[in-house]
Amino acid sequence: MRDVWVKVTTLAMLGATACAMTACTMDVGGTGTAGGGAAMPRATATLMDATGAAKGNATFEQTASGLRMRVQATGMAPGPKGLHFHMMGKCDAPDFTTAGGHWNPTGMKHGKDSGAGPHLGDLPNIEIGADGRGQIDTVAAGVMLMSGATPLLDADGAAILIHAGPDDYRTDPSGNSGSRLACGVVTPA
C-alpha cells in the first residue's frame, strides 16, 4: 500500500512541477490553463421539449476563437434541425416564445449564405440520425460567453433552441427552420 501512495505522491509532484515550469494554473477540476491565466468560462444547458421531457444537453466553453459548444440531442425525428442561440434565458412551454428571437447583438441579417450575415445567434444545423439522436461539436466564432461588448450571458440570459426543420442559412430572421422543438437555458457552470 505504501508503494501505491509513493507513486501517487510522486505523480502529483511531477504534475505540479510541470505546471510551474510552463506557467500554467490548475483549477478545482484539475484542468490547466496555459500562460498562468484563469480558467476559461463555461456553461451548460439542459434541452427540454414542450412536455418537460429531457431532449438533450449542451456544454459551452470559452476559447480564444469563440465559444466551443457540444450539443447532444435525443428522441427527435431524423434529419437536420436548426440550432440557434435565443436572446432570453427563459424556456416556458409549450412554444418557448419566452426565449425571444435569435440572439443578434450586432444587428446582422440571418444566415451565413444571406450576403448580409450571419448574426451571432446563427449556429450550424444539428443532424439527427435514424435512432433519434444527434450531436454537434463546433465553435461559434466571435461569441463571448460572459465578457466583451456583447456577452451571450447578459442581464436577461440566453437560451439554445433546436427547431423542427433545417436552417436554410439565408432566410431572415430565422432561417425558415420551423417551430421550436427543444429549449435550454444557458447557465454558468
Results as ranks from 00 to 15, higher is better:
His110Pro: 05
Gly117Glu: 01
Val8Leu: 05
Met108Trp: 01
Gly142Pro: 09
Val4Cys: 04
Met146Trp: 03
Arg170Ala: 15
Ala159Tyr: 03
Ala23Glu: 08
Ala50Leu: 10
Thr171Arg: 07
Ala34Asn: 09
Gly36Ala: 07
Leu161Thr: 12
Leu47Met: 07
Gly157Cys: 10
His102Cys: 14
Arg2Cys: 10
Ala141Phe: 04
His84Asp: 12
Lys81Phe: 06
Gly56Phe: 01
Thr97Ile: 12
Gly30Arg: 00
Ala189Lys: 14
Tyr169Arg: 13
Ala77Met: 14
His102Asp: 11
Ala93Val: 10
Gly32Leu: 04
Pro118Val: 02
Arg133Met: 08
Leu83Arg: 07
Ala189Phe: 10
Gly89Asn: 11
Ala130Asp: 06
Ala50Trp: 00
Asp156Ile: 15
Ile160Ala: 05
Gly165Ala: 15
Gly66Thr: 10
Thr74Ser: 14
Gln135Tyr: 03
Ile126Arg: 00
Ala189Asp: 08
Ala130Leu: 10
Pro166Gly: 14
Asp27Lys: 00
Ser114Thr: 07
Gly178His: 07
His110Tyr: 02
Asn104Arg: 05
Pro80Met: 11
Gly35Phe: 04
Met108Asp: 05
Arg68Ile: 11
Leu11Met: 06
Gly111Met: 01
Glu61Asp: 09
His119Trp: 00
Ala34Glu: 09
Cys24Ala: 06
Lys55Phe: 02
Ala23Phe: 08
Thr106Trp: 04
Met26Gly: 00
His163Arg: 12
Lys7Thr: 01
Asn57Cys: 14
Leu67Trp: 03
Pro188Gly: 10
Cys24Leu: 05
Gly117Phe: 00
His110Ser: 04
Gly175Lys: 00
Pro105Lys: 04
His102Ile: 15
Ala43Trp: 00
Thr31Leu: 03
Gly129Lys: 05
Ala38Arg: 01
Cys183Pro: 14
Ala149Thr: 13
Leu181Trp: 04
Pro173Met: 14
Gly52Thr: 09
Arg170Tyr: 11
Thr9Ile: 01
Gly100Thr: 07
